[in-house]
Simulated scan of single mutants.
Amino acid sequence: MAKPSYFYGIHAIEALLTHRPLDALSLFVQQGRESDSHVQDIISAAQANGVSVQPTQKDKLTQLCGSPQHQGVVLHARPLSFTNESLLDTLVANERCLLLVLDQITDAHNFGACLRTAVAMGVDAVVCPKHHAASLTPTVAKVSVGAAEMMPVISVTNLARTLSHIKQAGVFVFGTALNADAKPIHTVDMTGKSALIMGSEGEGMRRLTAESCDELVYIPMSGNDHGHLQSLNVSVATGMALYEVNRQRTSTAGQA
């Protein structure tokens, strides 16, 4: 079993205490911050779940979590786990299933930002490969502003095989790329069972991942010199792409 980790940041800790309070072990609170309303709520939630609360110096909190961005609270807790792959079978039975697939996104900040957007844009689950991908670290939890606790993240051994499996269940797989045959994302119908694949910055999707796509799409940009998806940070590109998917789905739902 993985060792407990030190989670930090108000929203990340609030989400952890809400969604898996039994995994919380000890709460460390910066001395002098106890009167802050958000911190008070965290202390109350921790105490309600039998978690010890310890006043701590600011520098010690930074030392515990390895970041000065702790906002006065650090929680010693069991690490966040990936969701079992079997959940996919349940999700793809939904006719409006939406999956976000992150192919080789290794930066924790980008990963966390993608999870935050995924929650906001109605994604059912995030799928990523087991290797060459960011883990569910406290940094990811902090950057995601608690979304890592809300969004199922499914780690798979063989991404191409998983994509083949969900395609057999009727999921249409869209991949973001700059190929000549890629279509502007707003011109394709993404209102049904869909999976959107975002590749790593620079390299994009791996060859086997790209070959698993039913359709390739790109984000149109203004000007002749900016038509490159890679010029965008991957988390920004993910936000733009998922906004378009959500726009289509919201529009369709309103017409139903």
Rank of each mutant, 00 (worst) to 15 (best):
V39Q: 03
N179C: 08
N110F: 01
A160M: 12
M1Q: 04
V29D: 00
Q255G: 00
L75E: 08
D181W: 12
A160S: 07
M1K: 04
A2M: 11
A169M: 13
L216P: 02
E149Q: 12
A148C: 13
T252W: 03
S212E: 02
V127Q: 05
K58M: 09
A48P: 03
P184H: 04
D107V: 11
D124N: 06
A108K: 00
F111V: 05
Q47L: 13
L136V: 05
P152K: 11
D124Q: 12
S26F: 11
A133V: 01
A237R: 14
L88Y: 08
C114G: 07
V236P: 07
S235C: 12
I13G: 03
S26W: 12
G9L: 04
V145F: 10
Q255A: 05
L22P: 13
A182V: 05
A256D: 05
P138N: 13
F28V: 14
H38V: 09
V173F: 08
S35V: 09
Q248S: 05
V126M: 07
L229F: 06
H38G: 00
K183E: 15
E215G: 01
M121I: 00
V188T: 12
Q248R: 07
E244L: 04
C114L: 03
A160H: 06
H226F: 15
V92R: 13
V74F: 13
E34I: 10
D189W: 06
T137V: 05
A93M: 02
V156Y: 07
L232F: 13
T157L: 12
I185R: 12
L216I: 06
S155G: 06
G50P: 03
A2P: 12
S164R: 05
K183C: 15
H132S: 06
Q63N: 15
F28T: 13
E211W: 15
A134Y: 12
I166N: 03
G112T: 04
L99I: 00
H226Y: 10
Q69E: 15
V92N: 02
N84D: 05
S52R: 09
I105E: 04
M205P: 08
K183I: 14
G66Y: 08
T176N: 00
L25Y: 03
D36G: 12
H70I: 14
R161V: 11
K142E: 13
M1P: 08
P129Y: 00
I154Y: 07
A118S: 10
S212D: 01
Q31L: 10
E215V: 09
N110W: 04
V123W: 00
V126S: 06
Q255S: 01
D23L: 13
D214F: 14
Y218E: 10
C97Q: 07
Q63P: 15
L22E: 12
A93P: 00
V73W: 08
L22Y: 15
I42N: 01
L99V: 00
M205T: 01
Q54C: 14
A241T: 13
P55Q: 06
A46Q: 02
V140K: 09
Y8R: 07
I10F: 15
A210H: 09
P79E: 04
L242V: 02
T83Q: 11
A169V: 01
Q57V: 12
